[in-house]
Design a binder for these strands. Structure first.
Lengths: 193, 193
DNA sequence: ACCGTATGCCAACAGGTGTTGACATGCAAT
DNA sequence: ATTGCATGTCAACACCTGTTGGCATACGGT
């Protein structure tokens, strides 16, 4: 029993753990799940490959730790309903440009079932929850969230993975102007059924 | 000189070549580029792995042959301008549901640079050309095509790769109703700039 | 019948993979 | 000072990968 109230005192290996995680995110984002080898990640982190195993158990475990991702969606209740689309695109673009975790997850989701499941969870839970906060037809909430995900992930896929020139070259503000109305309709538009 | 006009007489190995290609498309679509091994493809095609090398040179060569893909975009000039969006979504959905080549290309593009480049080519050339047929501002044509690609590929990504439940469960007709207006605006809408 | 070639299988190579265990070293508490 | 544990290194295992060359067989033209 330690005398103080420190719940878990920081371990000496925390720096190593963090550098492994950082290198893993970079490699997973750049190369995808299978091409990102534990040896390469360990070399980037300047430690031995066996340390990765000790601290994260397996490659799957390392990925699970490296691909922890929170959309950090803001509270949408104070947002004027007519600006929901714009707020969302802008948030997503800003969230991704500075964090390669989403790119890593996106690349890995194409080939790794666990990554795909995590991606499903993120967009099913976090995004659907956000969409549900403003009161639309509950039966349609999941579908609206799915449609938003399809455009948002399509934007990410073409911009960060395929690097489609017209999407890469368009400045963020202009992308927002084009795409915001799409999300707006998916979120608050009347069902076409 | 053969007497008839047959330009290149069919070789006996054409059946083998075709079965290799079919198995390759299945494996690439199901597993992605790196997980789809030549040995597994050869086993599916019930031939020896070395035959794959003889006929396609390398794994890259096999993929290049298996991922040959034509969007088969119809001539858009007779289409009423107000229905362009609907025609396009409907065409894409129909084109994909019966052909796994696009899924193979989509999966591989996440990790294989060659596949990504091919994907860029397909959407830059074929789709941009189709968009250019009806006379919009040429300076905006590429951007409009890119935006269409972002929504179309996002739909494919969420439906066939990530298998996001709300997108998978929504019947095609309803997807068309939701997404057609998006493409319509990307194609013919006024620039928000 | 013969011969050149196409088609196919087998065995192996060289290299890379995730993963494991044994062994050294350092730190911290007794 | 000594014990115990955390941290790190090294070497190796077992397996899988793309790829290659040699050898058998069957076909098609002469």
């Amino acid at each position: 029993m330690t005398p103080s109230a420190q719940p878990t005192q920081p371990r000496r290996s925390d720096a190593t753990r963090a550098s492994i995680l950082r290198a893993a995110r970079e490699r997973f984002a750049a190369d995808g799940y299978e091409r990102a080898t534990i040896r390469a990640i360990a070399a980037d982190a300047q430690i031995d490959p066996s340390m990765v195993m000790r601290y994260y158990g397996s490659k799957e475990g390392l990925f699970a730790a490296a691909a922890e991702f929170d959309l950090r969606l803001p509270d949408l209740t104070p947002v004027p309903p007519a600006q929901l689309g714009e707020v969302l695109v802008r948030h997503f673009l800003a969230r991704w440009e500075g964090d390669e975790t989403l790119v890593a997850l996106l690349r890995a989701a194409s080939t790794n079932p666990g990554a795909a499941e995590r991606m499903r969870g993120i967009f099913a839970d976090q995004l659907t929850a956000a969409v549900a906060t403003f009161g639309t037809d509950p039966a349609l909430t999941a579908r609206r969230a799915g449609l938003v995900a399809s455009q948002i992930l399509g934007l990410a896929f073409t911009r960060y993975i395929v690097r489609l020139p017209p999407i890469v070259d368009t400045p963020p503000d202009e992308l927002v102007s084009w795409i915001a109305p799409t999300l707006q309709r998916y979120l608050t538009g009347t069902s076409p059924g």
